[in-house]
Design a protein around this nucleic acid. Structure first.
Lengths: 215, 215, 215, 215
DNA sequence: CATGAATGAGAATTCATTCAT
DNA sequence: AATGAATGAATTCTCATTCAT
């Protein structure tokens, strides 16, 4: 039985790189740093991933697969629209919560001009349109219409992504860690509810945000 | 009188770097590349900005000053809440529209771990809390409460930022430029209105997004 | 019976390396490239040849054995001098024709400073003096006398080597392949004759070079 | 007055690289080795030549310019054919003698498959056809006809190149240096004469090779 | 203000080889 | 006989920065 120490080198590289990319950005991380953190010889990176960008490709692909699989499953369900939106918001929150690094790296990198991953972008664009395909249709949003798109599901996805980026950044700094530590299951139940309320009924129609952390 | 061609070297460096940072990320750009684009000798960068990070600091400070000045001015106005929110959304949209590169670079870089820039972060955090200070108060949002914050003004700011990142990325690729080209004054009037509607009254209470570009 | 597909791994390595060395030079080829072309695992190279230079040694030795065996057999024959020279030229041409890669690699590498192969050089030098020993004697050429040597058999060997290097290079480039394709049996009959004429009776005394390829 | 020590760094790099390429072949030499021999910082190589292959390009171009300029000047002269050939042979010998390293490197590298210098090859091919254009015409040699070409001027050029390669290699090994040391002006006068005799009138018609070194 | 040479550390990648299986 | 993981040195090239002019 291979213990933690013997976790396949490839996997250790992947995880080390993921954490570093999330914290410093793809270009801000060197292969030596990754190798050191993963506790492997530098050459192993090229051995397993061909090139540095190979790790990034793996990250993007992994995120893509997880994200769209998750989204599509929910998007294809047959629910009353309000319930459907609530469930989608909960799902997206859960996804980002469980895959914070994967998602921040992938989402941050997509708009950048990194030649080695240029071809993965089209995969995303297509995925975005298809992944929430039925869901958007039900909401009456045409992804090709920038106006509809910009006030559609994109809004809550952007908000959620922003929340987790902030949270992740807070965790890097000791002075803020305490705040991030409060973000437990309970918090996310209420967050999902509050965000859904906001998205569905607007700021004027929302319930009072009466959540207080239990200390 | 110095024409466009003779724009001060410092300014040319700043603008070249800004464009490159926006496209490739801070760490993905080298000083040589900046110098080449700015059409100056490499040494000029250190002469004017001390070090590469000096340009980034200038970018962040410039964005900070512009953004919070703008936000604060609107945030301090005395308007009925709904009107106030509408105006804030319009203002943020205008700001991002006029300062897309400045804003994307600054906002993208803030959560990253870039030691040279670490001290500017507290400035931001404080600015965020103060800049929309009165405005948040009026909305009943306590920035220290992550839940309230996460379903407060942050939501539309994140959405707007996301919109302009997408737009900027589209402009990099010829196949998408045509879509970005449709985003004119008229579009942004309607976008501001639609986003405010969404934020104020929610998806269930919004007007139908019947906008079509005039071709 | 092992078919072409199952040709022994060692042989496949040898042939792959030979082709690559001929095209890119010894130092310009890596073991991975050889292993890939030979369709074997990299480790097999060290298994069979000990080190990369082991392949080169094998190449040189093989060429040496073939070349000097061939040359010596002809050199030792007892023929009238003119006929003897003609036969030698035909033989050298045939040898280079049948062993173009082997010969170009070995001949190209001999003057280079490659430590691993240094001891094979003396073998060559001795071979050169002995291989055409009787032949040179009959021609009145003392190999230790650089002048006699430089206007002796060396001349036609150099010319022939040059011809096949050129031909080999032509075959690498599609635009020239058509020329190389004309070099058939008939051509080489005439080439041997013309070169022998030139060497024996000189440019002023040669027959008119009226050869035209039969298309 | 800039002394030998201050010879421009670029020139020192060029010369160091040239000597090393001649001895070990292009691919067999590393940039560190060049930098060390040239007594410059490694980065200077890229600063001045862009990439390692940049030095090789410079070498090839320099050889090309020198060689074809020299050849063309002689080839265009109007002399009786025999005298013309003799002069050409003397010229080629002089050229190789004065530019042994430049020429061996360039001539050795041309047939190899080195992508970075692929475009310089066509320059050579054209140069070869034009450089001796008139000269070949006078000799009745059509460079496109491989037979004529292979028994034309190519023969003595190959022989001369071979002579200087051998000489250069001898100079690398102390045991042979003494032979190379005998190759003085006098030797080359006789060599040119003997080679011209051979090329013009053939081995059967040559004068007796009565040269003996004066010790 | 401006240049271009120079530096040394660091970038990513490839090298030939070894080893355990 | 064969595999593929692993190693560490060496590869070429780029980095941001400095300095003398």
């Amino acid at each position: 039985m291979t213990g933690d120490k013997h976790k396949a080198a490839k996997q250790r590289i992947f995880e080390a790189a993921l954490a570093l990319f999330a914290r410093k950005g793809y270009a801000g991380v060197g292969v030596r740093e990754i190798a050191k953190k993963a506790n492997v010889n530098i050459s192993m990176i090229n051995y397993y991933f061909g090139e540095k960008a190979g790790i990034l490709k793996a990250v993007i692909n992994e995120c893509y697969d997880q994200y769209f699989k998750t989204i599509k499953a929910v998007g294809d369900e047959d629910l009353p629209i309000e319930e459907h939106i609530r469930k989608m918001i909960r799902t997206v929150i859960d996804f980002f919560r469980e895959n914070t690094e994967l998602a921040t790296v992938a989402f941050d990198v997509i708009p950048l001009d990194i030649p080695e991953v240029i071809d993965l972008k089209s995969k995303w664009v297509i995925g975005i349109r298809e992944g929430m395909g039925n869901f958007r249709k039900k909401m009456g949003v045409d992804a090709r219409d920038m106006l509809q798109e910009s006030v559609g599901p994109t809004v809550f996805v952007a908000a959620i992504l922003n929340h987790f980026q902030t949270k992740y950044a807070m965790n890097q700094y000791s002075q803020f860690k305490k705040y991030a530590a409060l973000l437990n299951d309970k918090f996310y139940e209420r967050y999902a509810e509050a965000l859904a309320d906001l998205f569905l009924h607007g700021f004027m129609g929302r319930k009072q945000p009466g959540y207080k952390e239990e200390t």
